[in-house]
Deep mutational scan, measured.
Amino acid sequence: KKYAKSKYDFVARNNSELSVLKDDILEILDDRKQWWKVRNASGDSGFVPNNILDIVRP
């Protein structure tokens, strides 16, 4: 599994996007496009722009 940390707050604008808060740790589900599909600690998933994410190295 790959993880990323959010650098900023992001508010979803539709139901395919995921609202995240700065410093959230997110599991990366799909990173093939500019919007990555991620899952948060609550189990919710959706798309966020990859420019707000930093890859977390294990």
Rank of each mutant, 00 (worst) to 15 (best):
K7W: 04
A41R: 13
D23E: 12
L21G: 12
N50S: 10
I28M: 04
N40Y: 03
S42R: 08
A12C: 05
D30P: 02
I52Y: 09
K2Q: 08
Y8P: 01
A4E: 04
Q34C: 10
A4V: 11
G46Q: 00
A4R: 04
K2Y: 15
W35D: 14
W35N: 12
D23F: 13
R13G: 09
L29I: 08
V20I: 10
V11Q: 09
K22V: 07
F47R: 04
F10G: 01
A12P: 08
D23H: 15
P49S: 03
N15C: 13
A4N: 03
W36M: 09
R39D: 01
D24W: 02
N50K: 14
W35E: 15
W35Y: 15
S19V: 04
S45F: 06
I55V: 13
V48S: 00
K7N: 10
L18E: 00
D30I: 04
Y3H: 10
D30M: 06
L18W: 02
D54N: 05
N14T: 15
K22G: 04
S45Y: 15
D30H: 03
D31A: 11
V11Y: 07
S6M: 04
L26H: 03
P49V: 02
K33S: 13
D54V: 11
S16Y: 14
A12S: 09
N51F: 07
K7C: 09
N51I: 09
N40Q: 06
A4I: 15
A41H: 12
V48G: 00
N14F: 04
N15I: 06
I25C: 08
N51M: 09
S6K: 00
D54F: 13
S16N: 15
E17S: 08
S19A: 07
D24L: 01
V48E: 00
D30V: 07
L18C: 05
S19Y: 03
V56G: 10
R13D: 05
R57G: 12
D23A: 12
F47Y: 03
G46D: 00
I55N: 14
S16Q: 12
D31G: 11
K33A: 11
D24H: 07
A12Q: 07
G43C: 05
E27W: 04
G43Q: 05
K7Q: 09
N51P: 07
V48D: 00
L26V: 12
E27L: 08
S45H: 03
V20T: 10
K22H: 07
S6F: 00
W36A: 13
V38K: 00
D30T: 06
I28A: 01
P49Q: 04
D9M: 05
K2T: 06
E27H: 02
R39S: 05
W35P: 12
D31W: 08
A4M: 14
I55C: 11
N50C: 12
V48I: 07
R32T: 12
L21I: 10
K5T: 06
N51E: 09
Y3G: 01
R39G: 05
K5R: 06
N14S: 14
V11P: 09
G43R: 05
V20R: 00
Y3V: 06
V20F: 03
E27S: 04
K33I: 09
S6H: 00
Y8D: 15
V20K: 00
L29F: 05
K37V: 09
L26A: 01
N14H: 02
E17V: 03
V48Y: 00
Y3E: 05
W36Y: 07
N15S: 12
Y8W: 11
D9Y: 05
F10M: 00
V38W: 00
D23R: 04
F10N: 05
G46M: 01
I52F: 04
V56C: 15
N15W: 08
S19H: 06
L21F: 13
Q34H: 08
K1V: 05
F47P: 03
S45M: 11
L26W: 00
D54M: 07
S19M: 04
I25P: 08
R57N: 15
K7G: 06
K5I: 07
W35H: 15
I28Y: 00
N51K: 14
D9Q: 07
F47Q: 03
K37N: 09
N50H: 14
K5L: 05
V38Q: 00
P49K: 04
V20E: 01
R39M: 13
K5S: 06
W36R: 07
E27G: 02
I28H: 01
I28Q: 00
L26Y: 06
E17Y: 04
R32Y: 11
D54R: 06
Q34M: 12
S6N: 01
A41S: 14
K2S: 05
Y3I: 09
L53H: 02
D54P: 01
L29A: 04
K37Y: 11
R57P: 15
K2V: 05
W36C: 11
N50E: 10
E17T: 06
L29H: 02
K2F: 07
R39W: 01
I28D: 01
K2W: 04
N40T: 14
L29P: 01
E17G: 09
L18V: 07
W35F: 10
W35I: 15
A4P: 00
R32W: 05
R32L: 08
S42W: 05
K37D: 06
N51L: 08
R57I: 09
I25G: 03
I52N: 06
K22C: 08
K7R: 08
L21W: 10
W35T: 13
L26D: 00
K5E: 04
S16F: 12
R32P: 03
N15G: 13
S19W: 02
L18T: 02
K37L: 10
N40A: 12
W36Q: 06
A41Q: 13
Y8T: 14
R57W: 06
D9R: 05
K22L: 03
L29E: 08
W36L: 10
R39N: 03
D54E: 09
L53C: 12
E17H: 06
G43I: 00
D44E: 14
K7H: 06
G43L: 05
D44W: 07
K5F: 07
D30K: 03
I25S: 06
E27R: 04
F10A: 02
L29V: 13
E17I: 02
V56Y: 15
V11C: 06
G43S: 06
K5C: 07
P49N: 05
D9G: 07
R32N: 15
V11K: 10
N50P: 12
P49T: 01
S45K: 15
Q34W: 10
V48F: 02
D24A: 09
G43M: 07
F47V: 03
E17K: 04
L21P: 07
I52V: 11
D9T: 06
S16V: 09
P49I: 02
K2L: 05
K22M: 05
Y3K: 04
L53A: 05
D23Q: 09
S6E: 01
V48P: 00
K2G: 05
K2H: 05
N40W: 00
I55E: 10
V56I: 14
K5A: 04
K5H: 05
N14G: 11
L21C: 14
D44V: 13
Q34I: 12
G43T: 02
A12G: 11
K37T: 08
Q34D: 14
K5V: 06
P49A: 04
Y3R: 03
L29Y: 02
I55R: 13
K1C: 04
L29M: 10
V48K: 00
K7D: 08
D54Y: 08
D23P: 01
I52P: 01
D54Q: 06
R57E: 14
N14A: 14
G43F: 04
G46S: 01
A41M: 12
F47C: 02
L29K: 04
S16C: 10
V11S: 08
K22Q: 13
K7P: 00
N15F: 08
V48Q: 01
S45W: 11
G46E: 00
V20S: 02
Y8Q: 14
N40I: 04
D31L: 06
W35K: 11
I55F: 08
K1R: 04
L18Y: 01
I52G: 03
K33R: 12
I52T: 04
A4Q: 02
L18Q: 02
I55Y: 10
D54H: 11
N51D: 10
V48C: 07
Y8N: 14
